[in-house]
Nucleic acid binder design. Structure first.
Lengths: 234, 234
DNA sequence: TCAAAAGTGTTTCCAATACACCCATGG
DNA sequence: CCATGGGTGTATTGGAAACACTTTTGA
C-alpha cells in the first residue's frame, strides 16, 4: 500500500467497496439478465448480481471488466457505470459500498463460468426474475432504467444482437427493452432513414416464412454522422 | 461497528469513501459553482469541491445532505447522485473512493461557512474555474453534463431561481446551463403552453426598462400533468 | 428622447403517427 | 394451400424553427 504521510487518510471505520454488474443479454425475443446463485453466506442459495471487491490497485471500470471477463470470458464489452449504493445495513457483515454497472453482451450463448462464491450462473427473463440478495433488486432497477434511457439516445442496442440481424430482430429488441410495442412501418422507416445500418445482401435461411434481409450496424458511418450534428433517437 | 460473523467482510486494503458535491447556483446571468479553498495538505490552497468522508452509519444521500447543510445551512435541496470515482492514485494518501453529487440551490446569496479543512468558500462562474484539486475537474464535468441532460427533461431549472422570476430570467438560466442561445419567442411560447408556470400578477420594480411580469412554478400542476402523460422538454 | 429589455404572431417545414395489404418461404 | 412473419406507402397532424417590430419604463 501507499505510504501514509502526515495528511494520511484516516477512515472512520472498516468498509469494503465492490462492483456489481447487470449483464444484459437478448435471446428469444426477450431481454435477459445474467444472475449467479450464491454458494456462501449471507444469502446462501439466493440469486444475486455478479460482483466482486475492487482490488487495491484497480480502477472501478477495471474491476467491472474483470468480473465480466471471469464470468463470461468476454472482453471489450459495452459497460457503463450507473450508480453507487451504500446504505449502512445493506450488507449484514459490515459496511459495504457497491458501484453498479450494466453491460450489454451479444446473443447470450456464452460459456458461463461461475467463480468462487457462486454455484450457478444463469440468464433470467427480465420479467421473470427471482428474489435477489442484498439490495440487488434496486441495483437492477436502476440499471434497467438507465438502459432504457440510453438505448433511445445512443445506438447501443446493436451490442445485444449478432453482427448481422433483421430489422424485426432490432424492433423486437427495442420492444423488450422499452416494454412497449412499436409500429413496424414507422420503425423501419426511421432506422433506414438514419443511414447507420447497411444491407449485407444476405437473407435469413431455414426459416419457415419469407426470409428477412440481414443488416449490419455501420459504426464508422454513425461516427461520421455524429460529427455532422446527427443524433440518434428511437 | 457491526459484529463480524463467519462470513464477515474482509476488505483487501484500507480505503475511504467520501461524497463530493457540485453545488450549482445562478446569479447575474451566469451559472456558478461553489468551491472551497483547501487549508490542509494535500493540495493545500487549491480550490476543490466541498466533500466529506461518509460516516459509519450514514447513507450516501445523507452524507451529501450533511455536507451541503454544513456549508450553506440549506436543507431539502435538490440533490442527485451522478457517478463514482476511484482511481487508485486519485488521492496521494491512499485509496479514496468518492461518490459525486450535484445540487441546485436558489439564487446564490447564502451565508457560506467553510468547515475544518477549508479556508474559504466562493462561487465561481462556470466558465472561469480555477485549477481544481484531485480529479475534481472530472467530477465537475460529469456533474455538469448530467445537469445539462436533466434540465431538458425535468423542470429542475426553477430550483436555481427565486420563487418568482421573469421568463427572461428563465431563458437566461437555460442559456447558461446549456451553453447555447435560444429563440425568445419560441422559448416563451413553449414554456407558457406547458401550463406549469403561473402569472403572479406582479411586475419587476426598479428596473430601468419595461418591467417584466413575474411568474412562479406551479409544482402541483406539473405533477398533475405528468400523471396524464405530459413530459417536460426544453 | 434615449437606452434597455419586455413582449408579441405567423409561416414554413419536417418528423411523428396512424393505418392495411401483398409477398416469399417451409412444411 | 396454409401458416408465419417480411416487407411496403400515404395522408394527417403537431411541434420545431425562423424571423422583426412595438411597448414600457427609468434616466
Amino acid at each position: 500500500m501507499l505510504d501514509a504521510p502526515s495528511y494520511s487518510l484516516k477512515p472512520f471505520f472498516v468498509s469494503a467497496v465492490s462492483v456489481d454488474i447487470v449483464i444484459f443479454g437478448f435471446e428469444n425475443k426477450s431481454l435477459r439478465v445474467l444472475l449467479v446463485q450464491r454458494g456462501v453466506e449471507p444469502y446462501m442459495n439466493r440469486w444475486a448480481l455478479p460482483g466482486e471487491m475492487v482490488k487495491a490497485n484497480e480502477n472501478l471500470d477495471a474491476a467491472a471488466d474483470r468480473v465480466l471477463f471471469e464470468l463470461t470470458s468476454m472482453n471489450e464489452v459495452y459497460l457503463e457505470q450507473v450508480a453507487s449504493f451504500g446504505a449502512p445495513e445493506r450488507h449484514p457483515a459490515g459496511r459495504a459500498f457497491t458501484v453498479a454497472y450494466y453491460s450489454l453482451i451479444g446473443t447470450s450463448a456464452h460459456p458461463v463460468s461461475p467463480n468462487g462464491w457462486a454455484k450457478h450462473a444463469q440468464y433470467f427473463d427480465i420479467n421473470e426474475l427471482p428474489d435477489l440478495a442484498f439490495d440487488h433488486a434496486d441495483v437492477l432497477n436502476a440499471c434497467l432504467e438507465r438502459l432504457r434511457e440510453r438505448v433511445r439516445m445512443r445506438p447501443i442496442g446493436f451490442e445485444l444482437l449478432p453482427r448481422t440481424f433483421s430489422l424485426s430482430d432490432l424492433q423486437n429488441l427495442y420492444e423488450s427493452i422499452l416494454g412497449e410495442t412499436l409500429d413496424k412501418r414507422n420503425f423501419r422507416k426511421k432506422i433506414l432513414s438514419m443511414g447507420i445500418v447497411e444491407d449485407t445482401g444476405d437473407l435469413q435461411s431455414n426459416v419457415n416464412h419469407r426470409p428477412a434481409k440481414l443488416y449490419r450496424f455501420d459504426e464508422s458511418r454513425y461516427e461520421a454522422l455524429v460529427k455532422k450534428g446527427f443524433s440518434f433517437t428511437v
